[in-house]
């Protein structure tokens, strides 16, 4: 069976070295894409017929809100890998993803709130979309807190994995909140099965920014995972070597 590639991930040293290289590639690509996407979106994309220029917050809000959920999915995959294969690296991944995911959730809530005031007339409303997104933020925060509250690292990893898997039910709720219930937040402008509800001159820069923010997230997660690995393996010989080398 071709499981060898998978088991290689079990070695923290193997991952630490490779992640360093990936991190650099992600960083440079992210910088290039965000520069193009953001300048294009803010400077050259046409204004909206109703909202004028305030709609341009989508070039930040949509990618970060997307990632807040995508990072949670990644964390759930880590939790399953931790339970089924007992892989240490999956726990490292969960720890890093929780912090980065929380950052993106806060950004999504904050940018949406800034847009809500001129468009809706309020910074906040307790509709299903905003509330479920706030719960996502609290889940991330709870995971960060839970980990630091339990001294034993193995136990902390297992406890976090359970909370991550319980929180997975929130993801479809966020996604369909604007369809199942009446909400103030508008439904998605992008669906896999339909044409986007905006012209290409608006969504192409958004797509570039989405990829850019994906790479930013990858960069942050890899950087944070490498730090966690160094911290956890601090007793081992290879970590001492790395620290003396750098």
């Amino acid at each position: 069976m071709g499981w060898r590639w998978f088991h290689e991930w079990g070695s923290p040293k193997w991952f630490y070295d490779r992640a360093g290289r990936w991190q650099r590639v992600c960083g440079f690509l992210a910088l290039a894409l965000l520069l193009v996407g953001t300048l294009w979106g803010l400077g050259f994309a046409p204004a909206d017929y109703q909202q004028g220029n305030s709609y341009r917050i989508i070039y930040l809000h949509v990618p970060v809100a997307f990632l807040a959920q995508a990072l949670y999915v990644a964390m759930a995959v880590c939790a399953i890998v931790l339970f089924v294969w007992k892989m240490k690296l999956a726990d490292v991944g969960m720890q890093a993803l929780a912090v980065v995911g929380f950052g993106f959730t806060v950004l999504a809530l904050f940018s949406g709130s800034i847009w809500g005031k001129p468009t809706w007339g309020t910074y906040w409303v307790w509709d299903a979309r905003l509330t479920s997104m706030l719960i996502l933020g609290f889940l991330y925060l709870g995971l960060i807190g839970l980990r630091s509250a339990i001294k034993n690292p193995d136990l902390a990893g297992k406890a976090c994995a359970i909370l991550v898997l319980v929180g997975v039910v929130n993801l479809p709720i966020i996604k369909y909140s604007v369809e199942w219930w009446s909400a103030l937040h508008q439904p998605a402008s992008f669906k896999l099965t339909e044409k986007p509800a905006m012209p290409a001159s608006m969504w192409v820069p958004l797509l570039i920014n989405l990829l850019g923010y994906y790479l930013v997230a990858a960069y942050l997660v890899l950087a944070s995972m490498r730090t966690v690995i160094l911290d956890r393996e601090r007793g081992s010989a290879w970590v001492r070597e790395v620290i003396e080398r750098d």
Partner: peptide, 14 residues
């Protein structure tokens, strides 16, 4: 309180 609801369509004015 009166809040405006925005739909999912975005369009340039032209």
């Amino acid at each position: 309180e009166v809040l405006a609801k925005h739909d999912e369509n975005y369009m340039p004015p032209e």
